[in-house]
Design a protein around this nucleic acid. Sequence first.
DNA 1: TTAATATATAACCTAATTGGTTATATTATA
DNA 2: TATAATATAACCAATTAGGTTATATATTAA
Lengths: 137, 137
Amino acid sequence: MITKKAEYAIIILTELASHPPGTIITSKRIAEQRSIPVNLVVQLLAVIKEAGWTSGTRGPAGGIRLNKDPSQINMRQVIEKVDGPIGITRCLFSKVPCQDKTRCSLRGIWAKAQQNMLSVLEEVSIKDLAEAVKTDY
Amino acid sequence: MITKKAEYAIIILTELASHPPGTIITSKRIAEQRSIPVNLVVQLLAVIKEAGWTSGTRGPAGGIRLNKDPSQINMRQVIEKVDGPIGITRCLFSKVPCQDKTRCSLRGIWAKAQQNMLSVLEEVSIKDLAEAVKTDY
DNA sequence: TTAATATATAACCTAATTGGTTATATTATA
DNA sequence: TATAATATAACCAATTAGGTTATATATTAA
């Protein structure tokens, strides 16, 4: 399952992307705005930063800035960065198909089902999400 | 994630469906044929039986018989019977959408991604799987 | 220079889930 | 009546999810 942490990470990036480019926002503010535990925001921002999508400046007046064009970050990328590789089945994590005939027939089906799911998530960017939120106002 | 138990259940039904209609097979034999722990086969057959797909006769010369046309059982049905309702995200389990704007925008996307996945699993029946295995020989 | 504010990083914790095992009861046949 | 089979329930260890706690480090303003 896609974890809540991955969902939070998407929301955090969306919050950053819904302000003018270059805007610096504090973790605390993001947490308040989106009702996410502050500690989790901080924890997730560390992972997000690892991907190079944001950078942070410390001290008073410090905060987080979005570094990458949000139209170039899609949902799948964020999920995989936070949760690791996606697999709807244990089977899809192993490189080698197993020996059992039925199970091998299944592998192709799992893969197709998963790809159908992922293609939706690949088509939606953080920018799309930020705009969708704005139009809701 | 779709559990190994659900996958096992699919394999068990496929094994039953790959013999002439009405054939009685023991749990032990299914377990050996498909390399599944016997205890798990027994446990899963209890769930499968609940759905009315099979019936068992006890005693020596007893075993399990497939009751339903395997073309009428699809993968999604089996998974949901064993694992319960499917949800790629915690969010999709709650009937009510949450308040946060970003999260509500996400809900529709999760739902679409999940439906794309499920439609694949709905299209494949136990009969399809049993035939796929046969043609592999 | 020091207090306050903010990110950065790591370790820890509890509850639920997964993938199974164990134990026991029941039924039917030889 | 012994044996082979299903039926049912309880149990269990390892992993994961979701989050907290603690501490270090950098920056600014007074």
